[in-house]
Measured scan of single mutants.
Amino acid sequence: GKMTGIVKWFNADKGFGFITPDDGSKDVFVHFSAIQNDGYKSSDEGQKVSFTIESGAKGPAAGNVTSL
């Protein structure tokens, strides 16, 4: 299901970062391709987002990331 969290950091040059879930669980990796914004796929530190957890090649990753 959908979770909410805060972007801990995001490196636009490398195209990835981490989200800290609101439920206190482990930080989740986020790749720019998962960000659902139109246009520039980046996110700012401290941005509140909703997301799903997908199982990626390197473990859990955020999917369907949407700014709230």
Rank of each mutant, 00 (worst) to 15 (best):
G1T: 13
G1S: 11
G1I: 13
K2T: 11
K2P: 10
K2V: 13
K2C: 13
M3I: 10
M3H: 11
T4H: 06
T4K: 06
T4S: 07
G5D: 02
G5C: 08
I6K: 09
I6V: 13
I6D: 03
V7C: 11
V7L: 14
V7D: 04
K8W: 04
K8Y: 05
N11F: 04
N11Y: 04
A12I: 13
A12N: 09
A12L: 10
A12H: 14
A12S: 11
K14D: 04
G15P: 01
F16W: 14
G17Y: 08
G17H: 01
F18K: 01
F18G: 00
F18E: 02
F18Y: 08
I19K: 00
I19Q: 00
T20G: 03
P21A: 02
P21V: 05
D22W: 05
D23G: 05
G24T: 02
S25I: 04
D27S: 04
D27H: 05
D27F: 03
D27A: 05
V28H: 00
V28A: 01
V28R: 00
V30L: 14
V30E: 01
V30F: 15
H31C: 10
H31N: 03
F32I: 14
S33D: 05
S33C: 10
S33V: 04
A34R: 03
A34L: 01
I35A: 02
I35R: 00
Q36T: 11
N37D: 12
D38H: 12
D38Y: 14
G39F: 14
G39P: 11
G39I: 12
Y40W: 15
Y40T: 09
K41E: 09
K41Y: 12
S42C: 14
D44C: 15
D44R: 15
D44T: 15
D44H: 15
E45M: 14
E45A: 15
G46S: 07
G46V: 09
G46L: 11
G46P: 09
K48Q: 08
K48W: 13
K48C: 11
V49N: 01
S50K: 05
F51H: 01
T52N: 07
T52V: 11
T52I: 11
I53L: 10
I53K: 05
E54N: 09
E54F: 12
S55A: 13
S55E: 14
S55D: 12
G56R: 07
G56F: 08
G59T: 02
G59H: 05
P60Q: 09
P60R: 12
P60S: 08
A61C: 14
A61D: 02
A62V: 03
A62G: 02
G63E: 08
G63N: 12
G63Y: 14
G63F: 14
N64E: 07
N64D: 07
N64H: 09
V65C: 06
T66W: 06
T66I: 12
S67R: 12
L68Y: 08
L68I: 13
